[in-house]
Amino acid sequence: MATKPKSAKKAPIKATKAEMLAFYREMLLIRRFEEKAGQLYGMGKIAGFCHLYIGQEAVVTGMQACLKEGDQVITGYRDHGHMLACGMDPNGVMAELTGRIGGLSRGKGGSMHMFSKEKNFYGGHGIVGAQVPLGTGLAFANKYRGNDNVSLAYFGDGAANQGQVYEAFNMASLWKLPVVYVIENNMYAMGTSVERHASETELYKRGISFEIEGEEVDGMDVLAVREAGEKAVKHARSGKGPYILEMKTYRYRGHSMSDPAKYRKREEVDDIRSHHDPIEGLKSQIIELGHATEDDLKKIDNEIKAIVKEAADFSLESPEPDASELWTDVLIEEAVG
């Protein structure tokens, strides 16, 4: 199973009340946002490929908490959660999903292709594995500039088989680049389970021959993610080079909206939902510790619902891009010399 049994999670909790509540809020925002996106897709308001992050919320939420101003994030096409965690505007994300001018890419990118220079989010990439060398390049730029920023390159278990990942690993280690590779191992690459696609299924070991340290993490536990993330980010930031975190996680929905997900049993999904859900897990810890009551959390839930509703309304009210947008942004029109 992807995650450790509950009983093993007896380590003392190393997070403040404020942190735990903030994590709760963040994960819930992603969950509700994605549920809404799924709904809008069903209504035909969102089209094409739409990959939901439901179930994996603890990974980006925990990792984002380890970053400081100027650190960069890059990922693949399952990117909505990463953008929300980076602080990108939910209205802009949702309006991009609906292909409107208010979207973060002015409607030209869609679900898989959003970016924010301001929030240091570098996409949003549709080609499996491509973000790994790109994220390594972000780290190269940090080292080149001599700053102490770190980049996070997220990718899936399936992406971990692409050759360019290993070309990037080699350079990152050779040149001690400040990059943390976050493998989101949700046990499936589309319909292919890790056992069927990977000769070494313990993906954190994939850096061994490049001398990159790696670690397996319970990606359904936001506090465990944060703890491992801090260690990895510290390692990269201090000039020791790259680090690999293999997040054991799970996606509840199909690969994309068009995936019937017949390759796994309903019970498998139900088991993880009811025993390892990252939001429910944190919620019970919060309540056990007396950090908040059910009612307090309900209030947060309502606030989140309002934010998501506003994003959905905005995404439907925002007009389609003007036809003239077709021709813009192909190249930067600037005379040189």
Binding site: A47, E96, G99, R100, P321, A323, L326, V330
Partner: peptide, 16 residues
């Protein structure tokens, strides 16, 4: 096709 990468927005895709 128009001489641009294919846009996502429904109206722009149709124009393209």
């Amino acid at each position: 096709q128009k001489d641009v990468p294919l846009p996502y927005a429904a109206n722009l895709e149709a124009l393209s």
